[in-house]
Design a binder for these strands. Structure first.
Length: 449
DNA sequence: AGCACA
C-alpha cells in the first residue's frame, strides 16, 4: 500500500505555476522551450536538461492561470505539444517555484568576474591582470574594484568562448609568483561569469582600462595616491630612482621661483628643466637632472633642508616617475635650460605633444596608446600628474605647451631673463639661495648644515 | 514519458 510513487503519477495534480515537461528532444535549448511555452504567459524561469536523460524541463510562469491555460490547451488540442516534431508531455510540477541551481556566475558570458584571494587591493596591478588574461585572447576592458569578497576585477573578452577558455584555465589557480610583489605570497584566482556583456569604462586609470579605446580620457585623479610601491629585495619599500626629483615645499612663507630652485639645485649638477605647480594646496616642483646619480646626490643632500633659515620652505624630495619633463622653455612656473635662449620663441609652437605622450623608459606595455599614464613605473609617493589633474592649473600651464598661449603671453607676464638671479628678497637671516650659482655649484653642502 | 540542490 505504500505506493506513494503511484500517487505522484495521478493526472489530477494540484495546479502550479511550474510545469514539468518531459520527452523533450536531446539537448533541448531554453529557446526551444520558451518558444513552446511563451504563447500562454510570461515565463519567469526555466530549468532545462533535467533528469537522467536530460530530456525533461521545468517552466515557471509568472501567474498560475498562465500555467493552467497551457495545460488546458494541450489537454484538448488536436495536436500535442511538440518540440522538433517530438511530442512533449506537460503537467503541473509538484513544486511551486523553480529554484535556480545555477547561480548567475555559472551562466557563461564574455565577461569574467575575477576575485583575487589573499591580496590587498592594489597588490595586483591592472597591468598584471591584463598580462595574465591576455594569454587567452584580446582583452577589451578591465575594471577593478574592492568588494567584501576582496579585490575583484571584471575582464571583458570578445566572446564567451574566449572568456570560458580563460576561466577554465585560470579558475582556482594563482598568478605566477614572479608577477607579484615581493610581499605578496600568492594570489589565488576565483573566476565566475559576470552578467555584464559590455563594461562601461569611463576613464583609463589605475583601476579601469578600455583597451579598445586608447583615446579615452585619463581619469584626472586616477593615479593619485594609489601608485604601487616598489619593493626591494629586503621587502622594504624603495623609491624608483629617477633623474627627475619631485620637491614638495613645506611652510612656504616666501616665494619660491624657478630661479631660486635653479640656484639651489644647480649646486649638485646641471639642472635641465624645472617646473613648479600647485598640488593639493602645496607648492611642488619637478627638477630634472641629466642623470640619476646627480639627482640622487641632490636628493640626499637637500632632503629635509630649508631653502631659507627659520624652517621656511622646507624641501621634501622624492624621485619623480617622470624622466623628461615637457615644459615651457620660459615661463614664471617652468624653465627648460636646455633650450638656447635665443631660440625660445621658435621653440614654442613646435612643442606639440601632451606630456603623457612622452615615451617612458621601462614602459611595460608597448604601443597601447596610453602613454605614461598606463605604463609609468610605480612610485611610493603620490607624484604629480600635471596634465591629468584639472585642479592643477598651475602645473598644467607649466607642463603643457599650449599653442594658444603664444606668442609672447608668457613674456609679458614674466619679463625677466631666464638666468637672472633670484628675484626675491630673502627673509632676514636667510642663508640660502642668493649666492652666485657658480659658487654653490662647487660646494653644495655648506648651505645645508 | 513521470519531478530538479546531491
Amino acid at each position: 500500500m505504500s505506493s506513494s510513487g503511484q500517487h505522484q503519477f495521478r493526472y489530477t495534480q494540484t495546479p502550479s505555476k511550474v510545469l514539468h515537461l518531459r520527452n523533450l528532444p536531446w539537448e533541448c535549448s531554453e529557446e526551444e522551450l520558451v518558444e513552446l511555452c511563451k504563447p500562454f504567459g510570461k515565463i519567469v524561469n526555466t530549468k532545462c536538461n533535467v533528469g537522467a536523460n536530460r530530456n525533461q524541463a521545468f517552466v515557471e510562469y509568472a501567474d498560475l492561470n498562465q500555467a493552467i491555460s497551457m495545460v488546458s490547451y494541450f489537454a484538448s488540442a488536436s495536436e500535442p505539444a511538440q518540440v522538433r516534431g517530438k511530442t512533449v508531455y506537460i503537467q503541473y510540477s509538484n513544486r511551486h517555484e523553480i529554484v535556480n541551481n545555477k547561480s548567475p556566475g555559472d551562466i557563461p558570458g564574455n565577461v569574467l568576474l575575477v576575485t583575487m584571494e589573499g591580496v590587498q587591493p592594489g597588490d595586483v596591478t591592472i597591468e598584471v591582470i591584463h598580462l595574465v588574461f591576455s594569454a587567452f585572447g584580446f582583452v577589451h576592458k578591465i575594471a577593478t574594484f574592492e568588494k567584501a569578497a576582496g579585490f575583484q576585477a571584471l575582464i571583458q573578452f570578445s566572446d564567451v568562448d574566449t572568456a570560458s577558455a580563460a576561466k577554465d584555465a585560470l579558475d582556482g589557480r594563482s598568478i605566477p609568483r614572479y608577477l607579484l610583489l615581493e610581499h605578496v605570497s600568492s594570489c589565488n584566482l576565483r573566476i565566475s561569469y559576470s552578467a555584464h556583456t559590455d563594461l562601461n569604462i569611463k576613464f583609463q586609470s589605475h583601476r579601469s582600462r578600455d583597451y579598445t579605446n586608447p583615446y579615452l580620457p585619463v581619469n584626472p585623479t586616477a593615479f593619485e595616491g594609489l601608485a604601487q610601491p616598489v619593493v626591494g629585495a629586503d621587502g622594504i619599500k624603495k623609491d624608483q630612482e629617477s633623474n627627475v626629483l619631485l620637491a614638495a615645499i613645506e611652510n612656504m612663507q616666501y616665494a619660491v621661483t624657478v630661479d631660486v630652485l635653479h640656484t639651489v639645485f644647480s649646486a649638485f649638477g646641471t639642472v635641465q628643466k624645472i617646473a613648479i605647480f600647485e598640488k593639493n594646496g602645496q607648492t611642488q616642483a619637478l627638477v630634472q637632472y641629466p642623470d640619476v646619480s646627480t639627482a640622487s646626490v641632490a636628493k640626499d643632500s637637500l632632503e629635509g633642508h630649508c631653502i631659507y633659515d627659520g624652517g621656511y620652505c622646507k624641501l621634501h624630495l622624492t624621485y619623480s616617475r617622470h624622466t623628461d619633463l615637457n615644459v615651457k622653455a620660459h615661463s614664471d612656473k617652468s624653465r627648460d635650460y636646455t633650450v638656447p635662449a635665443v631660440q625660445l620663441s621658435q621653440s614654442y609652437p613646435g612643442a606639440p605633444t601632451a606630456p603623457w605622450m612622452n615615451p617612458q623608459p621601462g614602459a611595460g606595455y608597448p604601443s597601447n596608446g596610453y602613454g605614461a599614464g598606463a605604463t609609468m613605473p610605480p612610485q611610493t609617493h603620490a607624484a604629480p600628474a600635471p596634465s591629468w589633474d584639472p585642479s592643477m592649473q598651475h602645473g598644467r600651464q607649466a607642463f603643457v605647451s599650449v599653442p594658444s598661449n603664444f606668442p609672447g603671453q608668457t613674456y609679458t607676464s614674466s619679463p625677466m631673463p631666464a638666468y637672472a638671479s633670484a628675484p626675491i628678497s630673502p627673509a632676514p637671516g636667510a642663508s640660502m639661495p642668493m649666492t652666485a650659482p657658480g659658487a654653490s655649484r662647487v660646494s653644495p653642502s655648506p648651505y645645508y648644515p
